[in-house]
Design a protein around this nucleic acid. Structure first.
Lengths: 225, 225
DNA sequence: ATTATCTATAGATCTATAGATAATGC
DNA sequence: ATTATCTATAGATCTATAGATAATGC
């Protein structure tokens, strides 16, 4: 719509310009996809939000789906890598005696911290990922990007719960990830339900409770045998 | 595509015909929306699946969004009503001494049983609801249809945990519903992660574990104070 | 000389409406 | 006579491509 401020019109190298435009496109697409899903967003919507012409998106991306996948991939490696490191650090510290709660703290808190520290773009990515996660195609993307961290977490949980059947551990993880995705989605439902006592965007409140809550769940499954 | 078998061409009353066509349209839309979301499905897709002309959908529904809302509403009252009854029964039985796990069994098992007993259409509705639940518009639909049951559950949980701050109970519910939605979505991810040990569609396996798992979580939050 | 961005436009849908036809209802 | 279904079609997008223009690069 309006001309960009001249400050942005200063001479940049092509590499800088490319990187900046790409980032703007990915940010815009990330936000819009998080709100409306793959099919609820048009390339024109994304282009308008950035302030460029629709066809520029085709210059940077083959088609709509590859833009979508690029949004997914851009931050997936970062969150996955950070959690992997946290789990490896925890493993190194505790050796053969990890606890369920310790492993969950490393897995969950590391992630929640990242979104809080990353501000709006990361919060948008969280909502994007959550929305995508319970669709069939989205779940397949999760496999590709997140299987390694998740399997690392599960291997530690198995060591912490040597007498618990693996099915119980997998089901426990299934519960954990559902709760996490519901958190990342930030739909505002818990705000309305609780009359404002809880806020969807309050990831610190979740962090204070989630690992403890889930760890007790795993132990109860284990005891129930 | 192919002609319908003549068996279906027998004379019916208009009311029967209307009811049958409506049900077919809603079933087809339910399945398609569960797989691709509101914007990922065209009216033509729905019509083709039923074997009628696209414009017939406009005869029964104002527009695409009202078809979507009709899909949501059709079964929402049933699942919500059944769970409400189960919770009231549980309340009547236990009076002033309900347990967290008892309340969760009434809430969760009643729902999971319904999907299992209801077969494919109900399983599709489960996936539809799960997919919708972590979108902004979907969460608002959840408010309308499910607030009463959820608040009933929460009132029982508060009685079971009189010394626990309400925020903790609401956050606990937030975890529970995330796990439940992840179950209903049946994306197949847990199947692949677990190498086939767990199956997304095995709601009985979830039923055997979920209330126990979550109840322990609530108690751990409560103790942590 | 190469890369980033825009103009113009094709071709394919998609939703929705108006009006015709084919069934059921009394 | 009324209701269910189909035919024909308008009008509005939407994705994607071809080719022009405007910047940066040496």
């Amino acid at each position: 719509m309006a001309e960009r401020p001249t400050a942005k019109r200063v001479r940049r190298t092509k590499a800088e310009q490319r990187a900046e435009t790409l980032e703007q496109i990915l940010d815009a697409a990330e936000y819009l996809f998080s709100q409306h899903g793959l099919h609820g967003v048009t390339l024109r919507d994304v282009a308008q939000r950035v302030g460029v012409h629709t066809t520029l998106l085709h210059y940077y991306f083959d088609d709509k789906l590859s833009l979508f996948e690029a949004v997914f991939a851009r931050r997936a490696g970062i969150t996955s890598g950070r959690r992997m490191e946290a789990l490896e650090r925890y493993e190194a510290e505790t050796g053969d005696h990890p606890t369920v709660e310790g492993a969950l703290h490393a897995f969950l808190d590391t992630d929640l911290d990242l979104y809080v520290a990353g501000g709006e773009p990361w919060m948008n990515y969280a909502a994007f990922g959550a929305r995508v996660s319970n669709t069939p195609e989205g779940a397949a993307l999760m496999d590709v990007h997140f299987d390694p961290v998740v399997l690392k977490l599960i291997s530690i949980l198995k060591r912490a719960l040597p007498d618990t059947p693996p099915e119980d551990i997998f089901w426990g993880y299934h519960f954990v990830t559902g709760s996490l995705m519901n958190t990342l989605a930030r739909t505002g439902r818990i705000d309305r339900l609780s009359g404002g006592l809880c806020k969807s965007g309050d990831f610190d409140a979740v962090k204070q409770r989630m690992a403890r809550f889930m760890a007790a769940g795993f132990l109860a499954l284990s005891r129930g045998r």
